[in-house]
Protein backbone atom coordinates (compact mmCIF):
# COMPACT_ATOMS: atom_id res chain seq x y z
CA UNK A 1 0.00 0.00 0.00
CA UNK A 2 1.57 3.24 -1.16
CA UNK A 3 2.17 6.31 0.89
CA UNK A 4 1.29 9.16 -1.43
CA UNK A 5 2.47 12.71 -0.95
CA UNK A 6 -0.58 14.69 -2.08
CA UNK A 7 0.69 18.06 -3.37
CA UNK A 8 -2.06 19.78 -1.37
CA UNK A 9 -2.33 17.69 1.83
CA UNK A 10 0.99 15.89 2.28
CA UNK A 11 1.61 12.18 2.94
CA UNK A 12 -1.49 10.08 3.09
CA UNK A 13 -2.40 6.40 2.82
CA UNK A 14 -3.16 5.02 -0.63
CA UNK A 15 -6.65 4.09 0.48
CA UNK A 16 -7.56 7.80 0.34
CA UNK A 17 -6.72 8.02 -3.36
CA UNK A 18 -8.04 6.72 -6.62
CA UNK A 19 -6.00 6.18 -9.74
CA UNK A 20 -7.05 7.86 -12.98
CA UNK A 21 -4.91 6.31 -15.66
CA UNK A 22 -2.21 7.74 -17.87
CA UNK A 23 -1.36 11.42 -17.46
CA UNK A 24 -0.67 14.14 -20.04
CA UNK A 25 -3.26 12.99 -22.51
CA UNK A 26 -4.87 16.23 -23.59
CA UNK A 27 -8.45 16.18 -24.75
CA UNK A 28 -8.41 17.33 -28.38
CA UNK A 29 -9.58 20.91 -28.73
CA UNK A 30 -11.43 20.16 -31.97
CA UNK A 31 -12.69 16.59 -31.76
CA UNK A 32 -15.03 17.00 -34.70
CA UNK A 33 -12.09 17.54 -37.02
CA UNK A 34 -10.46 14.25 -36.13
CA UNK A 35 -10.72 11.04 -38.11
CA UNK A 36 -12.13 7.93 -36.46
CA UNK A 37 -8.61 6.63 -35.98
CA UNK A 38 -7.32 9.83 -34.43
CA UNK A 39 -10.28 10.00 -32.07
CA UNK A 40 -9.87 6.33 -31.16
CA UNK A 41 -6.22 7.02 -30.38
CA UNK A 42 -7.28 9.61 -27.80
CA UNK A 43 -10.23 7.63 -26.52
CA UNK A 44 -8.88 4.12 -26.12
CA UNK A 45 -5.12 3.92 -26.38
CA UNK A 46 -3.25 3.95 -23.08
CA UNK A 47 0.27 2.89 -22.22
CA UNK A 48 0.84 0.18 -19.68
CA UNK A 49 4.55 -0.05 -19.30
CA UNK A 50 6.91 -1.75 -16.95
CA UNK A 51 9.01 1.08 -15.65
CA UNK A 52 8.57 4.79 -15.11
CA UNK A 53 5.05 5.86 -15.91
CA UNK A 54 3.19 9.18 -15.66
CA UNK A 55 -0.18 8.81 -13.99
CA UNK A 56 -3.20 10.82 -12.87
CA UNK A 57 -4.34 10.40 -9.28
CA UNK A 58 -7.20 11.90 -7.31
CA UNK A 59 -7.22 12.50 -3.57
CA UNK A 60 -10.79 11.19 -3.60
CA UNK A 61 -11.23 10.84 0.15
CA UNK A 62 -9.32 13.99 0.98
CA UNK A 63 -9.09 17.31 -0.84
CA UNK A 64 -10.62 15.79 -4.01
CA UNK A 65 -7.89 17.37 -6.10
CA UNK A 66 -6.44 15.71 -9.17
CA UNK A 67 -2.69 15.65 -9.56
CA UNK A 68 0.04 13.84 -11.45
CA UNK A 69 2.43 11.20 -10.25
CA UNK A 70 5.57 9.63 -11.67
CA UNK A 71 5.66 6.00 -10.61
CA UNK A 72 7.90 3.12 -11.50
CA UNK A 73 5.49 0.25 -12.07
CA UNK A 74 8.24 -2.32 -11.63
CA UNK A 75 8.83 -1.46 -7.96
CA UNK A 76 6.03 1.01 -7.17
CA UNK A 77 8.51 3.73 -6.30
CA UNK A 78 6.94 7.16 -6.59
CA UNK A 79 9.53 9.50 -8.05
CA UNK A 80 7.50 12.69 -8.02
CA UNK A 81 4.06 14.21 -7.53
CA UNK A 82 3.07 17.50 -9.12
CA UNK A 83 0.00 19.58 -9.70
CA UNK A 84 -2.21 19.45 -12.77
CA UNK A 85 -0.96 21.74 -15.48
CA UNK A 86 2.62 21.61 -14.28
CA UNK A 87 5.35 20.04 -16.33
CA UNK A 88 6.78 16.74 -15.08
CA UNK A 89 9.78 17.47 -12.84
CA UNK A 90 11.63 14.53 -14.36
CA UNK A 91 11.81 13.14 -17.85
Amino acid sequence: MFLINCPYCGERDQSEFSAGGEAHIVRPKQPTELSDDQWAEYLFMRKNIKGVQFERWNHAHGCRKWFNMVRDTSNDKIHAVYKMGENPPIK
Binding site: G20, V26, R27, R56, N58, A60, R64, K65, W66, M84, G85
Partner: peptide
Protein backbone atom coordinates in the same frame (compact mmCIF):
# COMPACT_ATOMS: atom_id res chain seq x y z
CA UNK B 1 -19.58 14.75 -9.28
CA UNK B 2 -16.17 13.07 -9.63
CA UNK B 3 -16.41 13.08 -13.39
CA UNK B 4 -17.39 16.76 -13.52
CA UNK B 5 -14.60 17.66 -11.09
CA UNK B 6 -12.16 15.72 -13.23
CA UNK B 7 -13.04 17.71 -16.37
CA UNK B 8 -13.01 21.01 -14.48
CA UNK B 9 -9.65 20.41 -12.85
CA UNK B 10 -7.83 18.73 -15.69
CA UNK B 11 -9.33 19.67 -19.07
CA UNK B 12 -11.04 23.00 -18.48
CA UNK B 13 -9.22 24.72 -15.62
Amino acid sequence: LSKLEDYLQTEWP
